[in-house]
């Protein structure tokens, strides 16, 4: 429940102490912005606005630059995400082996559009370009677990196991 609890702390508007500790490590380092954002996101599940402001202050960068980088890369998120992130592969191999039907099934079952999070904060649906497990197409990842050779029904039962 780590991500969800953290979210509650952050909406109160204060900057959590951990973020300052994390940032200490990156002070003055060359090319530190992306790794710093990566570690902060791993810690909070997303990048809250006050944290971005701290990043700019600590790394001595304009906030516009921090924001520019955070919005350029697909990996960074500025709003909270679900406890489980479903990364459904929509790559070529998965596409020709039927990932479209799985996407439709998950969308209708969870009532989500790509990029959205369920109201209970459990699942975020995130289509990705390729997970590189094409031999097992169609494939999806739920957090760090990879599941392959899916059918729409199997995909749902995989999600069931994360409830």
């Amino acid at each position: 429940m780590k991500a969800v609890e953290k979210t509650a702390v952050l909406t109160s508007g204060t900057v959590p102490k951990e973020s300052l500790e994390i940032l200490q490590k990156y002070k003055g380092g060359k090319g530190a912005l992306i790794p710093a954002l990566q570690e902060l996101q791993a810690n909070f599940g997303y990048l809250p606005e006050p944290v971005l402001e701290e990043v700019a202050k600590h790394l001595n960068l304009p906030l516009s630059k921090v924001y520019g980088v955070a919005t350029f890369y697909a990996q960074f998120h500025l709003s909270p995400r679900g406890l489980y992130v479903i990364r459904l592969c929509t790559g070529t191999a998965c596409h020709v082996r039927g990932s479209g039907a799985i996407m439709q099934k998950i969308r209708s079952e969870l009532g989500l559009k790509p990029g959205e999070t369920t109201a209970d904060g459990r699942f975020t649906l995130e289509p990705v370009a390729c997970l590189g497990a094409c031999g097992q197409a169609p494939v999806m990842m739920v957090n760090d677990d990879t599941h392959g050779r899916l059918t729409p029904e199997m995909a749902l039962s995989v999600l069931e196991s994360y409830k």
Binding site: K30, G31, A32, L33, I34, P35, L37, Q38, K65, G68, V69, F72, Y73, A74, Q75, F76, A129
Partner: peptide
């Protein structure tokens, strides 16, 4: 090791270097 942050264009060499430098790729 530098972990990418999810941008296909970073496979292009000058974009990749921009990304290592901490910029938009």
């Amino acid at each position: 090791i530098k972990e990418g942050a999810g941008a296909f264009v970073c496979g292009e060499e000058t974009a990749l270097m921009a990304s290592i430098e901490g910029n938009r790729g």
